[in-house]
Simulated assay, not measured.
Amino acid sequence: MRSKDGQQRRFSAGDIASFGQRDIPAGEKAGMVRGVFTSVARNYDLMNDLMSAGVHRLWKDRMIAALRPRPGMSVLDVAGGTGDIAFRILDRTHHRANVFVCDITEDMLRVGRDRSIDRGLVDGLAWVCGDAQSLPVASRSVDAFTIAFGLRNVTHIEKALGEAYRVLRPGGRFLCLEFSQVVLPALSELYDVYSYAVLPRLGQLVARDRESYQYLVESIRRFPPQEDLAGLMRDAGFGQVGYTNYSGGIAALHSGWRL
């Protein structure tokens, strides 16, 4: 990148972030991610069903089963704008938990609020627009932190993990459901073909937005594999870190505790 005086500018590692296959100035990523999800918000849930043949629902159900939410629990669900995780938590606790949904994209939150009204869910649910790297949440204030298919979109994963650790009470649990590295060679090849050849085209046909779904496919490939993410969680302070692969590693659920 060149500065205004025409000189070549070099970025340090902290100045660079990935956006799909590209490296960009870190300060630009949040706005670009917000633009992607503003574009796809209205079709986001439909596209998830089409892209995964509905399997994302099973992964999310397993995430909630692992969380084992209980009545009275306070949960911060980050990057959960359309409400999929929040609604499952409330259903599991018979609407007796407190769930705070935080998302960087206001349009995603609008979709979630509309869905909650349609479901008659008002009590125990709050919607907040905020960045995972600087959460508008008090330290040591929640019992659990969940994030599903959102961590790969933050600018600096280490900062988001640090924030997750900060807001959890001692004994609180962190759960991250995210696309990951396929561990079966034959499945990996098929998944690559499907991802790059089919998903962007599906985005064009259904959401009229090929570029956003091209980014989403590419962002999966730039996300740290399972063991690397587990290491980042330990570096952030989490204990008893582990993960479970779903569908041969297409997705993985990472878990850690603030001890």
Rank of each mutant, 00 (worst) to 15 (best):
A251S: 15
P25F: 00
D45A: 03
K60D: 12
G35A: 13
I117Y: 11
F223P: 12
G237I: 11
V101G: 11
G54K: 10
D61E: 05
R166P: 00
R173N: 03
R68F: 08
Y165R: 06
H94Y: 02
R88K: 12
T38P: 03
S255W: 09
S39F: 00
C176K: 09
V78P: 10
R201H: 09
H56V: 10
G171E: 11
A230L: 01
H56E: 09
Q240W: 04
C129T: 15
D209F: 03
F87M: 02
V122A: 14
Y215A: 05
E158C: 09
D15M: 12
L205R: 14
G237H: 08
R22W: 05
R115T: 11
D77P: 01
S247N: 06
V167C: 05
V217K: 07
Y44S: 04
E178F: 01
D45V: 06
E178T: 07
Y246W: 03
P185Y: 04
G248W: 02
C129V: 14
S3A: 14
A148I: 02
Q214D: 02
G248A: 03
H254V: 00
C102W: 05
M108T: 06
R88Q: 14
Q181T: 14
C176H: 02
A41M: 07
I85G: 06
F149G: 13
F11R: 07
G31K: 03
A66V: 04
L205S: 14
P71G: 04
R119Y: 06
R166L: 04
G120R: 01
Q214E: 08
D103L: 04
R166I: 05
P185K: 02
S12W: 13
Q181A: 12
P225S: 10
R169A: 00
Y215G: 10
A252Y: 01
M233W: 00
A252C: 03
A13W: 12
